[in-house]
């Protein structure tokens, strides 16, 4: 789920921070620049892991700041395609089920990757897995918001975001997520965790959950 990404950058330290050690300044500046941001084809940056190389610092004419080339490693959220993750359902819509990890929200399980057969319940705004019972009837399994869900990552998409126009301009702000993950739950064992809990494993607590689903 998490990986280390090696990157390099030139860090500009302004004179008012010269009293700090260079490593300290670099750490703060790199975290300010990258934490909670998506780097194209790398993933969602979480926090600085370590600095592997600090080059010479240069001062350019007309600028009192020091410029230092650094190589560093960053903790990045970048699940592998085919990886199994556990998230929580954020909401359901006609497009499918939106899942969140808490720190990352742009996960969609599209309609064609839900358990089959599923239908969208308009009154509850939730997807329902119509689990066929042996006697030919079906058992409705609701996918409510907030429930924990296990899914397989099927693909990932990076979108280069354009800089927004100058303030006051009428250009509509593009709001595309820079990094999106598509998931699937159309395999046995995937979907809400409560669907697959074996009775002897979960004891009383889960019995309550099952009754909720029956309602």
């Amino acid at each position: 789920m998490f990986v280390l990404a090696e990157m390099k950058d030139v860090i500009r330290v302004t004179p008012e921070h010269f009293h700090q050690s260079l490593t300290e300044s670099i750490t703060i500046l790199l975290n300010r620049k990258l934490a909670n941001k998506v780097v194209l084809n790398v993933g969602l940056c979480i926090a600085l892991f370590d600095i592997t190389h600090i080059g010479h610092s240069y001062i350019f004419p007309g600028d009192g700041s020091s410029h230092t080339e650094v190589k560093f490693r960053y903790i990045v959220f970048r699940p592998l395609v085919e990886e199994i993750l556990i998230g929580k359902i954020r909401s359901c819509s006609r497009e499918g089920v939106h899942v969140t990890m808490g720190f990352f929200d742009d996960i969609l399980i599209p309609v064609n990757a839900l358990q089959h057969p599923s239908r969208f319940d308009e009154t509850d705004q939730a997807w329902v897995w119509e689990y066929p019972k042996e006697d030919g009837e079906k058992h409705d399994l609701f996918m409510d918001s907030g429930e924990s869900i296990r899914f397989r990552v099927t693909s990932e998409m990076f979108e280069e975001s354009l800089p927004s126009g100058p303030p006051g301009s009428e250009r509509p702000v593009q709001n595309i997520a820079p990094y999106r993950i598509l998931g699937g739950i159309n395999e046995p064992g995937l979907g809400l965790l409560t669907w697959w809990e074996t009775p002897d494993q979960g004891d009383e607590e889960n019995d309550d959950d099952e009754h909720d689903n029956d309602d």
Partner: peptide, 20 residues
């Protein structure tokens, strides 16, 4: 800013938890 290696190593959840 330039990535050198997007996937230099895997981290397990425990390691990330410790660091954070």
């Amino acid at each position: 800013m330039e990535p050198i290696k997007a996937n230099a190593a895997f981290l397990c959840n425990y390691e990330v938890m410790q660091i954070l």
